[in-house]
Amino acid sequence: MTKQGWLALMATGTLLTAGCGADGPLEESRARPVVERYAALTYENYTDVVTQALRLREAVERFLEQPSEERLSTARSAWINARRAYGQSEAFRFYGGPIDDEDTGPEGQINAWPLDEAYIDGIIDGQEPLSQELITSMNERNGETNISSGYHAIEFLLWGKDENDTGPGNRPYTDFVDGITPSNAERRRQYLSLVTKQLMEDLESVRAAWAPGQDNYRKAFVAEAPKEAVLKMLTGLGSLSGAELAGERMTVAYDNKDQENEHSCFSDNTHADLYNNALGIQNVYLGRYGTADGVGLDELVAAVDPKLNEEMKQRLQASLDAIQAIPAPFDQAILGNDSSPGRQKVKAAIDALRAQTETLVDVATALGIQLNLE
C-alpha cells in the first residue's frame, strides 16, 4: 500500500487503553519481558531483511556487469529470497514506528504498490540525469501508482510486465544490453543499480533504529509503559491482519479480478508475500523469529484466558494454512466465478484473516486494551 493509503488506514483505526491495576495482565514484571522480546525479534527480522537485500544487490550488480539469462535468473531468485524476510517484517508497521513514521519513515520508498510500469519507463526514457535523489523524489509524485523506488520497482525491472497467464513476466536480459534492442539499455542498467542501492540504504536505516545498545527508537520503545508498547504491537498485528492483508492485499484483487491489484504482479510472488505477512503476525504473537524463540503475547494472554490464547493460536495457523492452499499464481486464482476452486480458496483465506482479526480484538480486550480496527 502507498503511504497515503496507510495514513488513510490509520485514520480509521484508533485505540483506547483501559485501566489496569498493579496486578493486571500488563503488570510490569509480566509485560516487560514481552516488550523486550518484541524489540529483539524486530531487530532479528530486520537484520535478516538487510542480509537478503545485500545478496540481492550483489546479484544485481553481477548481472549488470555482464548481462546474461543465467545472471538475470540469479538476480530474480535473490529478489524472491529477499521478499521472504521483508514480508514477515510487515508486522512491525502501522503504529508510526521507524519504518512508517509519518514524517521520516521510508516505507513508501521500500514497498509501495501498485506500480504503473509506464511511469518507470518514462523516467528511464527521459533526459534528466539519473540519481538516487531523482528516483526518490519521483516516488509517488502526482499519483499513488507513480512508484519509482523499492522492491516493486526492482521487480518490474527484473521481470517486466506479466503478460503470461501461467507464469510471471519474462523480460529478456537483452533489455540491459547496448545495441541489441532500442531499449535505453544503459539508463535501464543505471536505474536498476541505483534503485537497489537506495533500497539497501532505506532498510539499513530501519534496522539501525532497532539496534540494541543505541540511543534510538528501540531504546525509547522498551522504556515505554508496557501497556503503551503492547498497544503498538497489537495495532500493528490487527491493522496488518485486517484492513491491509485481508482487505487491500486480497479483497481488492478478489473483487476486481485484476492482476494490477495483486502485490507482486510482475514476479507472480504474491502467494508467498501473503503467506509471509501472515507468518509475521504469528511470529510476534509467539515471540519468535526463525529458530529464535522467547516470551510473546501468547504468554500474557494465557495468564488471563488460556482458552482465548489457544483460540488465537489456532486462528493464526488457520490463516497460514488457508493462504498456503491458494493455488499459484494468485492472479489466476482470483479469476472465474465465485464457485471456481481458486476463488473459493482466496475467499476462505480472506475469511480466516477476518476471523483472526476479530480474535486479536478479543486478545486486546483481555489485556485491558480496547482495539478499534477498520
Rank of each mutant, 00 (worst) to 15 (best):
N269S: 05
T74V: 13
D178T: 11
D321C: 02
A22P: 11
Q52G: 10
R207V: 05
D255W: 05
D162H: 10
R288W: 07
I281L: 15
R354P: 11
R93D: 04
A333D: 08
P168T: 01
V230S: 05
P329R: 03
G280R: 03
D293R: 14
D258N: 13
E28H: 04
V50F: 13
T145M: 12
Y289M: 01
R218D: 02
F63Y: 08
I147R: 00
A39L: 03
A355R: 13
S148T: 01
D178R: 11
A40W: 10
N256H: 12
G19N: 10
Q214T: 07
F330E: 00
T47H: 12
P327Q: 10
S68L: 02
Q356Y: 11
F330P: 00
L240K: 00
A303M: 05
G105I: 01
W113I: 02
T12Y: 14
P67F: 09
T17Y: 02
E36Q: 10
E28A: 08
K227Y: 04
A18E: 12
G21F: 02
V304A: 05
S241D: 08
G280E: 09
S183D: 09
A302K: 14
R141H: 14
A349W: 09
S73E: 13
Y173F: 15
L56N: 06
T181P: 03
G238M: 02
A272H: 13
G108W: 00
G87L: 09
K161Q: 14
G296M: 13
K197Y: 05
V304L: 06
A118K: 11
E144V: 07
Y254I: 00
D165T: 12
S267W: 05
N337T: 15
F176L: 10
A153K: 03
W6V: 06
S183M: 09
E163F: 12
M200G: 01
I120A: 05
T104S: 09
E311K: 14
H271Q: 12
L41E: 03
E299D: 09
A40S: 09
D305F: 05
S89N: 06
E163Y: 12
